[in-house]
Simulated assay, not measured.
Amino acid sequence: MSALGAGLEVLAPGPLTTVQDRGRAGAFRYGVGVAGAADRAALALANRLVANPPERAGLEVLLGGLEVRAEGPLVVAVTGAPVPVTVDGRPAPHASVLVLGAGQVLQLGQAPTGLRAYVAVRGGVAVEPVLGSRSRDTLAGLGPDPLAAGDRLPVGPAPAGRPRLRTAPVAGPATGTVAVGVVPGPRHDWFTDPGVLFTGTWTVTPASDRVGLRLERPDGQPGLRRRREEELPSEGVAVGSLQVPPSGQPVLFGPDHPVTGGYPVVGVVRDADVDRLAQVRPGQSLRFRPVPAPEVPAP
């Protein structure tokens, strides 16, 4: 513990703030999912800004409202949803390198668009790892608990090198209807008309979370109807899978999805669009379009 640097004291956690990194790769054999940051690109950018290796853990902040005090000199960056950022009440830039002195308070306001902001601190949030990751898996209950006022977050030793970027211009999260590429299958043949997935729009419901986006049809448009009535044996599912329960309203699996599922998967969102879905709010609409499966290199 002597190698750890100054930490962060949590003054206010906001609606939900969790520690996240790149997730638990290789833990499926234990029946444990990957978890990790919902918007992987946003966390990676925050780590790059503070010159961290990409595997260092940061904070995933739902909507905003986080308030933390630096226990010593720290370098931080805030990315993802464009939350207003202040240091000791003074406005600070988004997606930029911020230097905090001992006792200074970093505060995130409410995001006007998008859903999740990310805070990286040089050295990384150094809570104890579980199965090789510091991520909170909200479905399995693994990893550090969501932040609460009064928590102290240790920070790891600063890596070699210094930040090379002062700020990173980034596009804001999509508003309105979001277009998403989907690879059909593997169980599209279980539906009378799997093409219904690609007609009209689907609305994200308030029941959505890190486990998945729960979707419904607006204005009574038809859902997906099964061709087969028998039960499907449980099989592995991946992040981005569109699993369809008997209601015909899909669940689009997020980072904390279950490892297996017994409902048919009509399609899988392409990896390039997964991060964008992390910033979609309840009430927004998705429009799916079919894309070909990526080519798998020959062994």
Score class of each variant (00 low, 15 high):
residue 2 S to Y: 10
residue 4 L to E: 15
residue 7 G to M: 10
residue 10 V to I: 11
residue 14 G to P: 07
residue 18 T to Q: 14
residue 32 V to W: 01
residue 34 V to Q: 15
residue 38 A to K: 06
residue 41 A to V: 03
residue 42 A to K: 02
residue 44 A to S: 12
residue 45 L to T: 09
residue 50 V to R: 00
residue 50 V to I: 02
residue 51 A to C: 05
residue 51 A to F: 01
residue 51 A to L: 02
residue 52 N to C: 01
residue 52 N to R: 00
residue 55 E to S: 10
residue 66 L to H: 04
residue 70 A to R: 01
residue 77 A to V: 08
residue 78 V to H: 00
residue 81 A to E: 12
residue 81 A to V: 12
residue 84 P to F: 04
residue 86 T to N: 07
residue 89 G to A: 08
residue 98 L to V: 06
residue 101 G to K: 00
residue 103 G to V: 00
residue 109 G to M: 08
residue 111 A to D: 12
residue 111 A to V: 04
residue 114 G to T: 11
residue 115 L to I: 10
residue 119 V to H: 00
residue 121 V to T: 01
residue 127 V to T: 12
residue 127 V to A: 11
residue 133 S to W: 01
residue 135 S to H: 01
residue 137 D to F: 00
residue 139 L to R: 05
residue 143 G to H: 06
residue 145 D to R: 04
residue 150 G to T: 06
residue 156 G to V: 07
residue 157 P to M: 09
residue 158 A to K: 00
residue 162 R to G: 03
residue 162 R to S: 08
residue 163 P to Y: 02
residue 164 R to Q: 12
residue 168 A to F: 06
residue 172 G to C: 12
residue 175 T to C: 09
residue 175 T to P: 10
residue 177 T to E: 15
residue 183 V to P: 10
residue 189 D to E: 14
residue 189 D to Y: 02
residue 192 T to V: 15
residue 193 D to E: 15
residue 195 G to M: 05
residue 196 V to G: 08
residue 198 F to D: 13
residue 200 G to N: 08
residue 200 G to I: 09
residue 200 G to H: 09
residue 202 W to F: 14
residue 204 V to M: 13
residue 205 T to N: 10
residue 206 P to H: 04
residue 212 G to R: 05
residue 213 L to Q: 11
residue 213 L to H: 12
residue 214 R to G: 07
residue 217 R to P: 03
residue 220 G to S: 02
residue 226 R to M: 10
residue 226 R to D: 07
residue 232 L to F: 02
residue 233 P to A: 11
residue 235 E to V: 03
residue 235 E to M: 11
residue 235 E to C: 13
residue 236 G to T: 10
residue 237 V to G: 13
residue 239 V to I: 08
residue 239 V to L: 11
residue 240 G to M: 07
residue 242 L to Y: 04
residue 242 L to M: 11
residue 243 Q to G: 07
residue 245 P to T: 09
residue 246 P to I: 10
residue 246 P to D: 15
residue 246 P to Y: 06
residue 248 G to C: 05
residue 250 P to A: 07
residue 254 G to H: 02
residue 255 P to M: 08
residue 256 D to F: 02
residue 257 H to W: 01
residue 258 P to N: 11
residue 260 T to E: 15
residue 261 G to M: 06
residue 261 G to S: 08
residue 266 V to C: 09
residue 269 V to L: 06
residue 278 A to Q: 13
residue 282 P to W: 04
residue 286 L to C: 15
